[in-house]
Amino acid sequence: MIGPDLVLLLAIISAAVGCSVLTWALMPLLARYALARPNARSSHKIPTPQGAGIAIITATLIVTTFALGSSAPALLALMPLFAAAIVIGIVGAADDIRQIPVLPRFALQALCVGAVVFTMPADQQIIQALPLWLERVVLLIGGLWFVNLVNFMDGLDWMTVAEGVPVTFALVVFGLFGALSQPSMLLAAALGGALLGFAPFNRPGSAKVFLGDVGSLPIGLLLGWCLLQLALQGFIAAALLLPLYYLADSTLTLLRRMLRREPFWLAHRSHFYQKATDNGFSVREVVGMVCLTNLALAVLAGASIALKSIAADCMLLALGGAIVVTLLMRFAHRRA
């Protein structure tokens, strides 16, 4: 009988290999129908195919399905999530090829996130003191924001890899210590492996293909679902610490643009990580610092799970916030 550790390792390797092969096979098609041409808001200089997210999501869902093949109830419970990821990916693909107006796009995203949130079992609740309907509405709004912020933050080569790989692999480690269910662990392992398989095609300076909305939107949905499962186990601080850099950069940028009365729903180059490249940092330096920050946040999240203390959670969240603010301030100023 194959042990759980070996199953996770096989899931990571299978997803990485499957994503790499599928990305390579899709390249000619993407170059023909989904070419991202540079503009004033772009970080790339030459037309580059986009849409490799198709390979990431396909590899992730297939590997997770096979890994859970012997557990029909667990697989059945994931069907609303998988269906929503496919639909939201189709919406992203359509937007990659021909831009969809903001309101229809947002409405379709809300339907996908709502399908996941409102099909959760009634006994799954983070804060028992809240009415269930109120928590589900908050989760819907938070899920919509998380799906979109992953899309917003996918503006540099390797950026989504630098975020997704540390977070997913941290979730796998936490699961091995009992903080996460097996289906969530396997999904995180497959997603992390698929992102590793995508990474060689998206190297800074020589990227052959981009993720596209077809990838960033469902990645946000799947990653958000895994973090939600961690919070449902009672580890709310850990679920906040893992994506804290993404949450801070996107939320502060959104608030700043709203205060300036800018059309915040339009594409822009106002994120801290984008300003960093304008301030003299190379793309590799930016994603490297983001990755190291995420690794530090993963360590703090692990400490939160191990200590199981409200006082410790507050201290660790404050420390994580200080680490993230330090990075944002560095990005906001010109490199010495």
Score class of each variant (00 low, 15 high):
Gly3Asn: 12
Pro4His: 08
Leu8Lys: 02
Leu8Ala: 10
Leu8Arg: 06
Ile12Cys: 10
Ala16Glu: 01
Val17Thr: 03
Gly18Met: 00
Val21Asp: 00
Thr23Arg: 03
Ala25Thr: 14
Arg32Cys: 09
Arg37Gly: 02
Pro38Gly: 10
Asn39Ile: 10
His44Cys: 01
Ile46Arg: 15
Gly51Cys: 06
Ala52Ile: 04
Ile56Phe: 09
Ile56Gly: 04
Thr60Asn: 05
Leu61His: 05
Ile62Leu: 15
Ile62Thr: 14
Thr64Gly: 01
Ala67Trp: 01
Gly69Arg: 02
Leu75Lys: 03
Met79Pro: 13
Leu81Met: 07
Ala83Ser: 14
Ala84Glu: 03
Ile90Phe: 15
Asp96His: 09
Arg98His: 15
Gln99Glu: 15
Ile100Arg: 03
Pro101Lys: 13
Val102Leu: 11
Pro104Arg: 13
Ala107Ser: 14
Ala107Leu: 15
Ala107Pro: 08
Leu111Gly: 08
Val117Ile: 15
Phe118Pro: 10
Met120Gly: 07
Ala122Asn: 10
Asp123Gln: 12
Gln124Gly: 01
Gln125Arg: 07
Gln125Ile: 12
Gln125Thr: 07
Pro131Glu: 01
Trp133Asp: 00
Arg136Asn: 02
Val137Gly: 00
Leu144Thr: 00
Trp145Pro: 12
Trp145Gln: 08
Phe146Trp: 09
Val147Cys: 15
Asn148Val: 12
Met153Asp: 08
Asp154Cys: 10
Val161Gly: 00
Pro166Asp: 05
Pro166Asn: 07
Val167Ala: 11
Thr168Lys: 04
Leu176Lys: 14
Leu176His: 15
Phe177Thr: 14
Pro183Ile: 09
Ser184Arg: 01
Ala189Val: 04
Gly193His: 05
Leu195Ile: 12
Leu195Ala: 11
Leu196Lys: 04
Leu196Asp: 02
Leu196Met: 13
Pro200Asp: 03
Asn202Arg: 02
Pro204Asn: 10
Val209Trp: 02
Leu211Pro: 08
Asp213His: 11
Leu221Ile: 06
Leu222Ile: 11
Leu222Gly: 06
Gly224Gln: 05
Trp225Asn: 06
Trp225Met: 10
Trp225Cys: 08
Cys226Ile: 04
Leu227Met: 08
Leu230Glu: 04
Ala231Tyr: 03
Leu232Phe: 00
Leu232Ala: 06
Phe235Glu: 01
Ala237Pro: 04
Ala239Asn: 00
Leu241Tyr: 02
Pro243Arg: 00
Tyr246Leu: 13
Leu255Trp: 15
Arg260Thr: 06
Pro263Ser: 01
Trp265Asp: 10
Trp265Lys: 05
Trp265Ile: 14
Ala267Gln: 08
Ala267Asp: 08
Ser270Lys: 15
Lys275Thr: 09
Asn279Cys: 00
Glu285Phe: 06
Cys291Tyr: 14
Thr293Leu: 06
Ala296Asn: 05
Ala298Met: 08
Gly302Tyr: 12
Ala311Thr: 14
Ala311Ser: 11
Ala311Asp: 03
Ala312Pro: 02
Asp313Cys: 14
Gly320His: 05
Gly320Lys: 06
Ala322Tyr: 01
Ile323Asn: 03
Val325Leu: 14
Met329Val: 15
